[in-house]
Design a protein around this nucleic acid. Structure first.
Lengths: 129, 129
DNA sequence: CTTGACCTTCCCGTCACTGGAACCCCCATT
DNA sequence: AATGGGGGTTCCAGTGACGGGAAGGTCAAG
């Protein structure tokens, strides 16, 4: 399979697939003409990577998870730790965003949104005292 | 005031303050020795920027909001639109993260986390069929 | 006079790609 | 045989919002 087919199958842009090869996440073969030739195992890896990225794992996490995936002697505790740490980051991020949202939605609600200049949003940003 | 004092007062790193000058968000004076000299109005702007950034506004949004802040003839509707759009982005981001969190927390709960290799997290990432 | 804290500019690195240029390859049509 | 178009390739630059660190100038204190 050429990169275009793989892109269609995995949903990953060709650019992304080349990038993943660049950083040694995958190692596709090469045809005589220099084209990348992907085997089923490469496609499988790319699907794995796509799903892990969709769950927000960093590339380095993906590298770790892939290594564990391919290591038959892994301990599930190692996988769980990576996932739990990432989950904690996501929870923290959600909390940050919720705090922003709460403040912002109060301000937006308080703003008349007409053609007059008075604006509680700017008052708040300006120090509101 | 020199940059160090301003950094202490605003809580912004000196690097960030220099960066904001670089991209023309602030225009501090210069002393004869080349040091930046900050007036109260600069500090006020930096506090404004710090608060806007803390609410997650992009630098370009901050530039827009600053311009509106300084425009006495602004319409609050313009401010409100910027804030409402940003709020929508935050809501979207929260929704994305919640979806990740839900999937991930299920997987983490399902994983034994012991020294055996069986792991529902990797099964899911690998296509789980 | 020297030390050390502060300031300056400049350049590279972050993260995970994306866009674009310049070029090669293969198949089909004229 | 030439041409056109749709693949593919590499390499370089840019994204956002800074942070790290080098190399060097400035200033007050001891």
């Amino acid at each position: 399979m050429n990169i275009g087919d793989v892109s269609a199958r995995t949903g990953l842009p060709a650019k992304t697939i080349r990038y993943y090869e660049d950083i040694n996440l995958i190692k596709p073969m090469r045809d005589d003409n220099g084209y990348r030739r992907f085997r089923d195992q490469d496609v499988h890896k790319l699907n794995f990577l796509g799903r892990a990225r969709a769950l927000g794992f960093t590339i380095e996490d993906c590298r770790t998870l892939m290594a564990l995936y391919e290591d038959e002697t892994r301990a599930s505790a190692d996988v769980k730790r990576v996932a739990r740490d990432h989950l904690a980051q996501i929870e923290a991020k959600i909390a940050d965003l919720k705090a922003m949202r709460d403040t912002l939605s109060h301000l937006v609600d308080a703003c008349a949104g007409d053609d007059r200049p008075d604006c509680p949003i700017l008052q708040d940003l300006g120090g509101k005292s």
